[in-house]
């Protein structure tokens, strides 16, 4: 048996356990860290699918930046676990129903009749010089260049909107302007006064 299936099963077991832990563990910090582990093992599985660009970007963006900020916030908040568990039984039927619905939908969409090996065909094994990064770049910047640029513009708009919505001027807080600080010259600050020596009294 080759090593690939063994690796796949190791990674997918860790992924399933970590994903389950995200929603079941009591400590929110542990939940966030489980999510990090889930992202990381997911990236490992993507690597095995020869999608190294996506895998590395997943680690870079989600693990390296998004989850750091998540953890940051979770650690700062003093989350009241008892209160967040209130009404668990009351909301269980509705929540369970929605979960079941999503599960059925996913089975219908992602089931073997749409994504089975007969439909998609055996995935191609590429040679060692195959570059997933290059393939993605070529596809994004030729075939899908307009959707890609529009998505980029939308994201930029979202950034500007988020900053514009949350920014507020605080007239009471003091700011420094480093450009002005650097431009300061001696003459602005110090004045040397020449005066006659005073008589001793």
């Amino acid at each position: 048996m080759s090593i690939e299936p063994i690796l796949f099963y190791i990674f997918s077991t860790i992924l399933v356990i970590a994903s389950a832990a995200v929603v079941t563990v009591r400590n929110p910090v542990y939940a966030a860290l489980s999510l990090v582990l889930a992202f990381f093992t997911c990236a490992a599985i993507w690597l095995m699918l020869e999608a190294e660009f996506l895998a590395l970007v997943l680690v870079l963006v989600y693990v390296g930046a998004v989850m750091v900020l998540f953890l940051f916030v979770i650690m700062m908040l003093d989350i009241n676990l008892a209160r967040s568990k209130e009404g668990f039984i009351k909301y269980l039927p509705a929540g369970g129903f929605v979960a079941l619905l999503i599960f059925i939908e996913m089975c219908v969409v992602l089931g073997p009749e749409n994504f089975g090996i007969e439909v998609t065909g055996e995935p191609l094994k590429h040679a060692a010089d195959y570059s997933n990064t290059k393939e993605l770049g070529v596809t994004l910047y030729t075939q899908y260049v307009y959707p890609f640029e529009i998505a980029g513009a939308l994201l930029l708009l979202a950034i500007v909107a988020a900053i514009a919505l949350t920014m507020r001027r605080r007239p009471d807080s003091k700011y420094q302007d480093p450009a002005k600080q650097v431009a300061v010259r001696r003459d602005d600050r110090v004045r040397i006064v020449k005066m006659a020596t005073e008589k001793k009294q």
Binding site: L56, V59, V68, F72, N132
Partner: peptide
């Protein structure tokens, strides 16, 4: 000798921050 070496370095060096945050917390 991987193709996306630069990205790999950037991705992994961004993981180092977890040690610091977790240690602090």
């Amino acid at each position: 000798d991987i193709d996306a070496g630069l990205l790999y370095v950037l991705a992994l060096s961004s993981m180092g921050v977890y040690g610091l945050i977790i240690a602090g917390w």
